[in-house]
Design a protein around this nucleic acid. Structure first.
Lengths: 277, 277
DNA sequence: CGTGCCGTTGAACTTGGTCAAACGGTGTGG
DNA sequence: CCACACCGTTTGACCAAGTTCAACGGCACG
């Protein structure tokens, strides 16, 4: 029996409780071939042959699309426990690139191996399909945000999404989570220029909704942020982790242990006149 | 033995050649419960319970997301042969709405029924998964377009996509296809206002790239349109229909418009070329 | 101690949205 | 057959949001 400590398995197990043997089988598969990649390094680029399924174990990564003029659009963010499998049965060439945002470790396996597991363990199959549909839901929300939300709303929406996704893998503590993206990356995800990201993040900060310093985000007013970003978390289907979140979300949670040098003191500049949402 | 004439089966068969019995099984399933819906009518709305898988047989439909202020964003366009199955294993509530664009006929089946077919016929399973990954690719392209392309490029991209998708189901004749969307719908798909859609479509028309009248689109210069929209069709994985397209695309129009990207170019197309059909 | 990257800010500029009105086809009722 | 209303398209004028360009400060790294 293997000791299981793997964000992917944890995540699936939360939605579809898995038997010990199922977890073991998954864990065994994931441990077989795992890789490490430094930050900002490409995992593959457009046109590369589609080979293995990749599962993020630590760190953040993204899929993106590069334009001729050098600009790029991130089409999907991948957190620990996320799987890159849309291409399991795809064409032979990637139609997009993927890169590490922070340094990452990830597991690789062959489509056939996953396939086999699904055959043997229907629960795993269900869990993987669930996972796929959540990803599709996230894609739809991105399309909605890019098409119809303004800069402030998009950024607020993104932070909400990342907060919930981080929370669902236990990466939120004291309303804070590590976010290895830079402002440029946020712009690439939200379709905005870095200048605009900078200004709107500042606005959110000054509105007392969040703080973001040295790769760490603190959500100060989740409800307010969700309101700005027209965000509601149902599409992430986190019922099963709601209890965890309740503890986290609980209003004005005062648990600030590191009083000495908390870089996340609310920025009460209070010139709300800037905003018109 | 059933005589098969069904865009869904045709489409799958093109990528993964199916045996007669497989086609029969699919056809039998699809014929069991089919429905009709008038144009602009919702199939379901946000919050509805997830019930059946739907497969479009005739007409166009879309999934969309409604905002408080009444604006909406189309997140996916569904042409004949397209399947709405992202939610096969999803949560119990829809996180988006779907409506008919033109009047449509569609088949419904239960997730379990499709499931069963997949178990019995691995080829069908592969074909369905292929289909799913193509849809995901289209979603990614939409994200790219919404995030990083300007109005003209987005519209050109959309027309290219729809041209190829129509062609792949045999709905293009003489470079023309029926498009039941209005300018408002195009705006809802591209994240633009109808005014802007009107202006940019006019620009594309005047650049001699396409014409669009009474629900019919004629692609006059596919290469030019693709260039404007930064479109390349690989992500649709249409190798298997390339031969069909070659015949269609072939033609007369060597991609002029090297410098013709200017939306305000003189109306060189005011001659009969638009009107003669 | 440079050098370079990232975040920050200001100012000019461009794109696209909003508002409002006119146009044109189509279907309905007098 | 015409008048009318309705709906989608077209166009202009104005305005707001976001981009681009440019400069500066801080911080890490060599």
């Amino acid at each position: 029996m293997v000791i299981v400590c793997n964000p992917f398995i944890t995540k699936l197990d939360r939605k579809i409780p898995l038997l010990a043997e199922e977890k073991d089988a998954l864990a065994a598969l994931l441990e077989r071939r795992s890789s490490w990649l430094p930050a900002r390094k490409d995992m593959y680029v457009e046109g590369d042959p589609v080979t293995s399924v990749r599962i993020i174990l630590e760190g953040w990564a993204c899929r993106y699309n590069q334009l001729q003029d050098g600009r790029r659009q991130i089409v999907e963010l991948l957190l620990p426990g996320d799987i890159m499998s849309q291409d399991r049965y795809l064409t032979d060439r990637q139609d997009h690139a993927a890169c590490a945002i922070s340094q990452i470790t990830y597991a690789r396996c062959l489509p056939g191996e996953l396939e086999e597991l699904e055959q043997t363990f229907p629960r795993i199959k269900a869990a993987l399909h669930w996972n796929t549909s959540i990803s599709a839901g996230i894609q739809r929300q991105w399309i909605r945000a890019l098409g119809r939300l303004d800069a402030c709303q998009r950024i607020a929406h993104l932070f909400c999404e990342l907060f919930y996704r981080s929370a669902s893998i236990g990466a939120v503590h004291d309303n804070m989570f590590r976010m290895p993206m830079g402002q440029r990356d946020v712009g690439d995800a939200t379709g905005l220029s870095t200048v605009q990201v900078n200004r709107k993040v500042k606005a959110l900060r000054q509105a007392g909704l969040l703080s973001w310093r040295s790769r760490t985000v603190r959500i100060i007013d989740l409800a307010g942020l969700a309101k700005v970003g027209l965000f509601s978390p149902e599409y992430l289907d986190l019922d099963s982790v709601e209890t965890d979140l309740d503890a986290i979300i609980a209003p004005n949670s005062p648990s600030r242990h590191h009083d000495g040098d908390d870089p996340h003191a609310p920025d009460q500049a209070s010139d709300r006149s800037i905003f018109k949402w």
